[in-house]
Amino acid sequence: MKKCAFLSMDSLEDFVCYDHLLNEPLARRGWQVREISWRAEQVDWNQFEAVIIRSPWDYQQDPNAFFKTLEDINRSSARLENKLELVEWNIDKTYLRDLEQQGIEIVPSLWRAKFDRQEWELFFEELGTDEIIIKPTISAGADDTYRLTREDKADYAEKLTAIFADRPFIVQPFMPNILSEGEFSLFYFGDSYSHTILKTPKKDDFRVQEEHGGRLQLVEPEKKLLATGQEILELIHPDPLYTRIDLVRTAQNTFALMELELIEPSLYFNMDPESPERFARVFDEWMN
Rank of each mutant, 00 (worst) to 15 (best):
T196G: 07
L241K: 02
E210M: 11
K202G: 15
P168V: 01
A165E: 14
E211W: 03
V171L: 00
D204W: 11
I245M: 10
G182P: 03
A227N: 13
K202E: 12
E210G: 05
Y193D: 09
E211Q: 14
I245W: 01
K199A: 01
T228G: 06
S180Y: 03
L235G: 10
Y188L: 13
V219A: 05
Q230W: 04
E211R: 12
E220D: 14
T196L: 10
S180G: 02
L226T: 14
E183G: 02
N177F: 05
K223N: 12
D205I: 00
D166F: 12
Q172L: 00
F206V: 07
Y188W: 15
Y193L: 10
R167V: 13
V219H: 02
R244L: 10
L179R: 11
F174N: 06
I178R: 04
P168M: 02
I236S: 03
R207A: 01
R244Y: 07
L216S: 09
P240M: 03
K202T: 14
H237A: 14
G229C: 08
V171E: 00
L218M: 13
G229S: 11
T200P: 04
K224M: 10
F206R: 08
Y193Q: 08
K199M: 01
R207C: 04
K199L: 09
E181F: 06
R215H: 15
R207L: 07
Q217K: 15
E234M: 12
E222A: 07
P240K: 06
I197L: 10
D166V: 14
Y193R: 07
P201K: 06
E220W: 06
G182N: 07
K199T: 04
P221E: 07
E183N: 04
Y188M: 11
G190W: 05
L218R: 09
R215P: 07
T243A: 08
S185F: 03
D205A: 08
Q209P: 01
Q172P: 10
A165K: 12
T200D: 06
L186F: 07
E211H: 08
E181V: 08
I245G: 06
L226R: 14
K224V: 12
I245Q: 03
K203S: 11
E220I: 14
F206Y: 10
I170N: 02
D191P: 07
I232Y: 03
Y242Q: 11
K223E: 14
D204Y: 11
I236V: 13
